[in-house]
Design a protein around this nucleic acid. Sequence first.
DNA 1: TGGCAAATGAAAACCGTTTTCACTACTGAA
DNA 2: TTCAGTAGTGAAAACGGTTTTCATTTGCCA
Lengths: 152, 152
Amino acid sequence: MSVQSSHGHTHAKGPQSLRLTKGAKKVLEVLERTEELSSAQDIHVALRSEEESPPGLTTVYRSLESLVQFGLVQAVDFGDGERRYEMVKPGEHHHHLVCEKCRDSVHLDQCLVQQLEESIQAKYKFEVRGHILEIFGLCENCQNAMAATGKK
Amino acid sequence: MSVQSSHGHTHAKGPQSLRLTKGAKKVLEVLERTEELSSAQDIHVALRSEEESPPGLTTVYRSLESLVQFGLVQAVDFGDGERRYEMVKPGEHHHHLVCEKCRDSVHLDQCLVQQLEESIQAKYKFEVRGHILEIFGLCENCQNAMAATGKK
DNA sequence: TGGCAAATGAAAACCGTTTTCACTACTGAA
DNA sequence: TTCAGTAGTGAAAACGGTTTTCATTTGCCA
């Protein structure tokens, strides 16, 4: 897949040929320097605080969609009704530990599911194309905080 | 945790003592005889087609919430904006293969993450309390259908 | 039976996301 | 360089699942 600049007339006939639009570049910049996962609205807020004429929310959503198609960004869903995004480091694929208390998340360094896929494929004749795995619980800090206050 | 009937005055002081309300029972009945995952709206539709005075959507949502708290039902989120629910068979914990085409889902017979939890706990000092793992792809039928029509 | 808290339903509020539509910006061709 | 056409953008509206509000009903208990 080739990534080209915005507004180029490509004569590619793909469903939609992918371009890196201006807005998408700004979105990507935010994600590049953000350690944690960001929601579309997070990104929008960030852009508004630093750009003179920041892209609107709509454009942020659209940019994220195409960045995901590019494979530059991956969407992560914790099932709390708000999708989050992060840069894809090439060749990396990983999951998160999400603290239920402070919502901080930690990357697990590699994909824990890969080795399962083959056996699933064989056993169920199911063509695996993707998966979500997110692990919830309490980070060390919150464990301590709760122990201190006696809350459960 | 004790499950009691609706409207009972329990003198338990828990945050909210859990009761199995009339609406929740009906919701549970639907889930009991449903093989696939059901959304709140699925359940509501099912109830409307078979009850003289079916619980409203609001009640279905509230029932599901408490059934999840009871531990009788688990919520599953595929990240498509619609939460689904299923009965928890005691002691069972599993994940799903979800076909991206027809949305059918197959239960995996056991939890694939359990053995990971210990090592995560040790390595990250993270207290694991739960996780989501759902695997997406194409079921055998849809693979064949696509092969037949040449679609990709 | 009367009182009261819990349960319920309808409608409205919510909130993240998507769609619509008018307008702007860019590009390639003439 | 201008023109035409297409892609990108933003504001506002639409959407859809879920939650909240609030008035009403239900059923337990004294």
